[in-house]
Simulated scan of single mutants.
Amino acid sequence: MEDFYLTIPYGLLVLAGGIIGYVKRRSTASLAAGVGFGGLLLAAGFASLRAFQTHSISYLALTLETVCALVLMVLMGWRFFKSRKVMPAGLVAILSAIMSGFYIYKMATRKHHVISVSSV
């Protein structure tokens, strides 16, 4: 499975979560984090999709996806352990841990050559 299949929905969830946090609690920190991380994840997801369409691999996109997921996992995990609130911190930490594992797996198993399409 290609990473953009999960990255784009993950980025949309992070973005929506930041917007919802702002609307419900007027939390500018939630808005900034949601828009920032969600935007970066969406940009990386679409860059990965674009690379896939051109039969290449975007290592930059995969690295950005991994870093965003790891940072969200650590920050939201720390926030969860401080507050013991599952929503939103615990949920985002768990989702980010799963995504981090997926991205690390993709990095470890990625072929180190560009896929070429032969003409028929």
Rank of each mutant, 00 (worst) to 15 (best):
M1Q: 11
M1F: 12
M1T: 12
E2I: 03
D3Q: 03
D3N: 08
F4S: 00
F4C: 00
F4W: 10
Y5R: 00
L6M: 10
L6D: 00
T7P: 03
T7Q: 03
I8N: 00
P9T: 06
Y10N: 00
Y10M: 00
G11L: 02
G11C: 01
L12G: 02
L12K: 01
V14Q: 02
L15M: 08
L15T: 04
A16H: 03
A16N: 01
G17P: 09
G18Y: 01
G18F: 01
G18Q: 00
I19T: 02
I20Q: 05
I20N: 03
G21H: 02
G21R: 02
K24H: 03
R25K: 08
R25L: 02
R25H: 08
R25A: 02
R26A: 01
R26V: 01
S27L: 00
A29H: 05
A29G: 09
S30G: 06
A32N: 12
A32R: 11
A33L: 05
A33F: 00
G36H: 08
F37T: 04
G38A: 05
G38L: 07
G39W: 06
L40K: 00
L40C: 04
L40F: 13
L41T: 14
L42V: 09
L42K: 09
L42T: 11
L42P: 15
A43E: 10
A43Y: 15
A44K: 13
A44R: 14
A44D: 14
A44C: 12
A47S: 15
A47R: 14
L49S: 07
L49E: 12
R50A: 13
A51Q: 13
A51M: 13
T54N: 15
H55C: 05
H55K: 11
H55N: 15
S56M: 13
I57A: 11
I57V: 15
I57C: 08
I57D: 15
S58M: 13
Y59F: 15
Y59W: 15
L60R: 10
A61N: 11
A61M: 12
L64E: 12
E65W: 12
T66E: 13
T66C: 14
V71N: 10
L72H: 07
L72N: 04
L72M: 13
L72T: 10
V74Q: 03
V74F: 13
V74I: 15
M76I: 02
M76L: 05
G77K: 04
G77W: 04
W78I: 01
R79D: 06
F80D: 09
F81D: 04
K82S: 05
S83F: 09
K85M: 06
K85P: 05
V86N: 07
V86C: 03
P88R: 02
A89C: 05
A89S: 13
G90E: 08
G90D: 07
L91W: 14
I94A: 12
L95K: 01
L95W: 04
S96D: 09
I98V: 15
M99L: 07
G101V: 06
F102I: 08
F102G: 01
Y103S: 00
Y103R: 02
I104M: 12
I104A: 08
K106H: 11
M107T: 07
A108Y: 11
T109G: 07
R110N: 10
K111Y: 05
H113F: 08
V114H: 15
V114N: 09
V114F: 06
S116R: 10
S116M: 04
V117L: 09
S118F: 11
S118W: 07
S118D: 05
S118Q: 10
S119T: 08
V120E: 10
V120R: 10
V120C: 02
